[in-house]
């Protein structure tokens, strides 16, 4: 049987957060793909139908001009660019807000229940936006988390997709 496909969009996945990958590989339950910037994430999202996508909010743009311009527009405070949110907005509202031109057409398979957000932003910062996008699974990065936090989040999204209620 094919393993569920997971995409983790996270620029710190190979260093500060590398420990979180251990439990996923050790579980042997999932096929994991890593995207370290917006350009790579879009490339994967357009090429592969994932079962779960875990998204960071502060991600670099990569080489694509569209995301680079979004990033540049944020001015000096690059954290304010919140390209992860921009990407979610593109994925779920892109057809309505002019983003779906040229190669930046959002893939048809994406559904909010397949997505979770794992970021340093707090509930008060992005909670409302995520609710508006229909994303119910969200974990804030902080030091006290277990190294199984990412695995748990993936399991939670899978359970939610299979009809179980998502846990807060």
């Amino acid at each position: 049987m094919n393993k569920p496909r997971i995409l983790w969009v996270e620029d710190s996945a190979k260093f500060e957060l590398a420990n979180l990958l251990g439990p996923i590989y050790a579980s042997n339950k999932y096929e994991l793909t890593l995207a370290e910037d917006a350009t790579a994430a879009v490339r994967y999202l357009q090429a592969v139908q994932f079962d779960v996508v875990i998204m960071d909010i502060r991600i670099p743009p990569g080489r694509d001009r569209y995301w680079s311009q979004q990033y540049e527009r944020a001015g000096a405070d690059k954290a304010a660019a919140q390209l992860g949110l921009a990407m979610l907005s593109w994925l779920f509202n892109g057809r309505n807000n002019g983003h779906s031109n040229g190669k930046l057409v959002p893939p048809a398979w994406v559904r909010p229940e397949q997505f979770a957000v794992f970021s340093v932003e707090g509930e008060f910062e992005i909670g409302e936006t995520l609710r508006q996008l229909g994303i119910r699974n969200f974990v804030e990065k902080r030091p006290g988390l277990l190294d199984t936090v990412l695995l748990d989040l993936i399991n939670r999204v899978i359970r939610g997709r299979n009809g179980h209620a998502a846990q807060p």
């Binding site: 996945a13 190979k14 260093f15 590398a18 420990n19 990958l21 251990g22 439990p23 590989y25 050790a26 042997n28 890593l34 190294d147």
Partner: peptide
């Protein structure tokens, strides 16, 4: 656990995660 222990380089494509996968 055997296949992963035998071939952790093939099973964990991200080199930075291999040690931690084996630790888990």
């Amino acid at each position: 656990q055997l296949p992963l222990l035998r071939d952790f380089i093939g099973a964990v494509p991200i080199p930075e995660s291999r040690a931690n996968t084996l630790r888990v």
